[in-house]
Design a protein around this nucleic acid. Structure first.
Length: 503
RNA sequence: GUGCCCGUAGCUCAGUAGGAUAGAGCAACAGCCUUCUAAGCUGUGGGUCGGGGGUUCGAAUCCCUCCGGGCACGCCA
């Protein structure tokens, strides 16, 4: 049987279904079919009344730990984190709707060398303020950003010179000192605040130090050692990651007896899997971490699990341009382009939208001057405008005394003959649920953005061709718009975009 | 050198669990407001899907190879 013959048989069978209006086979092997109007009407009704209409049980309650952003607490969040936050947050929502049991998580690297250097940097800037002529000695790899000086003056406001008197001339404990602890707290606070105003909230903030304090790093290493994956060389202890496809073994305990960051990661992954029962771990990381994938794969296997339990998504680089010229984004260089700054320039909604417009594996050029300059032509306005228009129609309908409640309009609506624009709008609305599931499965919120654009485009076309209030099919159209409004709200919520009732 | 990502319209990019005539926005051009918001709509022009080979009834999508761009390859985190 060739494809067309199969299509013929299928079309014939479909035609017998009482909900099918028409089904025709098309070469080379497609079946085009349409449903009866009442089917659409019934589905729209479900969408309006059931808040879980777009959800699916695809994930069957599987436990996923989704980690993203996880920026070191040594500075304000930058634009790379912004992309991660935007993407990760949308993906979290999508996975939850697709029936997964998701925990979104931010890992705070508050234990290692970076944190030590940050503590020193804060101390030096503080000393600079306390002592006339003191020249801050920021060590190699320390933090030169102006925010460190700001922190220092805030600290001086709080404490005066008390800390200067306490710490001056004494040996400085890199791990246990006020500056480090205080700076950490301030930075995490600041990052949380930034994320909150960006509309991103994590289920859990997990501190690396928790693992050390609970002895889990030691514990995890002994398990890996018991499984035969540790060796000693040059006074250091190595995890034999080459057994799992890495190109070289990795140090877990340095010559000086300190654990490496990688050692914490073993404990961290074990914590997610064993202590908290995650069945799948998803890590969203920057492109500079792709060399880390093999190491993570080694960990999960050394813990006796399969590779299918780990998924590493490399979110590609963001190139920030200003007037076509590249802006360098190194945290350590001190010349920082922050997420707060971006929101101020282009607005939260535009930033959130831009960051998920393209898929995670593509580089992203973000021209800040362009986004700013063309802000009224920004694609996010296109979708927000549709929502405002819908709201406006309902407002107008009320003024004219029309029935706006979906229940009554459902009863009055005749869906037997939808025109082209009505039908297009209805199918676009109903399609959103499938798109959400697909976007979750493919880890591509950009698919939802695309569908949302299509949906909104259907609406704008419809709007320009047909009147709703006093257009002759008022109940039908208001009923459709009730459903559209719900669909838009759901999409906006996932993408973190504000519903604007007026524009 | 090795690994990963990318190469699609003038520009920025969607689309890659193989399927119909490859899409959108911006830019260009021509129209649409006495009527629910013109931040909108309608139409026109614009393509060797980086090149070449292969698999298939069918390839932007899968395989091989080459070219071009980006990033990463620490007892850093």
């Amino acid at each position: 049987m060739n494809p067309f013959e199969i299509a013929l048989v299928t079309a014939e069978a479909l035609s017998k279904n009482p909900e099918v209006k028409e089904a025709v086979a098309v070469k080379p092997g497609y079946v085009n079919f349409s449903l009866k109007g009442d089917v659409y009407k019934r589905e729209l009704q479900k969408l309006i009344t059931d808040s879980a209409y777009f959800n699916s049980d695809y994930g069957a309650g599987k436990k996923i730990n989704l980690e993203f952003v996880s920026a070191n607490p040594v500075g304000p969040l930058n634009i790379v984190s912004g992309r991660a936050a935007s993407y990760g947050s949308a993906l979290t929502s999508l996975l939850k709707r697709a029936g997964y049991d998701v925990t979104s998580e931010f890992y705070v690297n508050d234990y290692g060398r970076q944190m030590d250097l940050f503590g020193i940097s804060v101390k030096e800037r503080y000393f600079e303020l306390c002592e006339e002529g003191y020249k801050a000695q920021i060590p190699e790899g320390g933090y030169l950003g102006g925010y460190v000086t700001d922190l220092a003056s805030k600290l001086r406001e709080e404490k005066g010179d008390a800390l200067y008197d306490e710490y001056r001339g004494k040996e400085f404990d890199l791990k246990k000192n006020f500056f480090r602890a205080w700076g950490l707290e301030r930075m995490v606070e600041a990052q949380k605040k930034t994320l909150e105003s960006f509309g991103v909230v994590f289920d859990r903030w997990f501190y690396e130090s928790e693992l050390h304090e609970a002895g889990e790093v030691k514990e995890a290493l002994s398990i890996v050692e018991k499984n035969g994956h540790i060796r000693e060389e040059d006074g250091a202890r190595w995890f034999k990651t080459t057994k799992f496809g890495d190109d070289k073994d990795r140090v877990v305990i340095k010559q000086d007896g300190e654990y490496t960051y990688f050692a914490s990661d073993i404990a961290y992954m074990r914590n997610k899997l064993e202590k908290r029962g995650a069945e799948t771990i998803i890590n969203i990381m920057g492109p500079d971490h792709h060399g880390y994938i093999k190491r993570l794969e080694a960990i999960i296997q050394a813990l006796g699990r399969g590779l299918e339990g780990l998924e590493v998504l490399i979110l590609q680089q963001v190139n920030l341009l200003e007037g076509g010229e590249k802006v360098k984004m190194s945290k350590r260089a001190g010349k920082i382009v922050t997420l707060d700054g971006l929101m101020e320039e282009v607005g939260k909604d535009a930033a959130r939208f831009f960051f998920v417009m393209r898929n995670y594996n593509s580089h992203l050029d973000f021209d800040i001057s362009l986004a700013k300059e063309q802000s009224d032509k920004n694609p996010v306005y296109y979708v927000q405008y549709a929502y405002a228009r819908v709201c406006n129609i309902f407002g107008h309908a009320s003024e004219k005394g029309a029935e706006t409640g979906p229940e009554k309009n459902f009863a009055a609506a005749d869906f037997s003959e939808l025109n082209e624009e009505e039908a297009g709008l209805v199918t676009s609305v109903l399609d959103i649920g499938d798109v959400m599931t697909e976007a979750a499965v493919k880890r591509s919120p950009s698919l939802l953005v695309q569908a949302l654009n299509g949906l909104v485009s259907s609406f704008h076309s419809f709007y320009n061709m047909h009147r709703v209030v006093g257009g002759g099919r008022e109940a039908e159209r208001l009923f459709i718009l009730s459903a559209l409004k719900v669909a838009l709200e759901e999409c906006f919520e996932i993408l973190g975009i504000t519903k604007r009732e007026r524009m």
